[in-house]
Nucleic acid binder design. Structure first.
Length: 153
DNA sequence: GCCAACGTTGGC
DNA sequence: GCCAACGTTGGC
């Protein structure tokens, strides 16, 4: 089982929204590197849910991959924000996954804490200028993150 | 194929 | 709201 980190702006879609919805199609990723990570996800993989563009940014919960290799339907919808006129149903460009809610951490891990605990090579989200919205997390790093999340002060 | 212009992300 | 970082686009 592999671990990942997936970013979302809470104003757009938060861990609370996922808790309510239980599962959600992770649509709208339009970056090839992020897409490649999405397509290499397997059923049962888990991902740290990261709130970006908020105060404070950081990891807020855990999700799991419940459906893999889903064609992102928004790419064909000309009225949609994520419409891609260069993508066609017989040869879609954008595949993604469906995520399922696992838990919201009682105490989130802020970006400041992540920067204290990990180097940019260990955890890409602490890299300066990093804009990738989906990234892998090494198992040893994931275990440390889980330990941090479950440690109440 | 280069690279300037442009748009977006996301921390601060 | 600002702006650095960086991916994409399009003219040449």
């Amino acid at each position: 089982m592999a671990y990942w980190l997936m970013k979302s702006e809470p104003d757009v879609y938060s861990i609370g929204d996922l808790e309510r919805d239980r599962t959600e199609l992770w649509d709208g990723v339009r970056n090839y590197q992020a897409r490649n990570f999405l397509t290499s996800m397997a059923l049962g993989d888990q991902a740290f849910f990261y709130h970006s563009n908020t105060k404070p940014p950081g990891i807020v919960g855990l999700v799991e991959i419940v459906e893999t290799n889903v064609v992102d339907p928004t790419q064909f919808d000309s009225t949609h924000k994520y419409y891609d006129p260069k993508s066609f149903p017989d040869k879609p460009r954008w595949h993604t996954v469906t995520v399922g809610y696992v838990e919201t951490f009682a105490r989130g891990i802020t970006l400041d804490q992540l920067k204290e605990a990990f180097t940019p090579d260990e955890l890409w989200v602490v890299r300066r200028g990093n804009r990738l919205s989906v990234m892998p997390v090494e198992d040893t790093i994931a275990q440390k993150l889980l330990k941090m999340a479950y440690t109440t002060e």
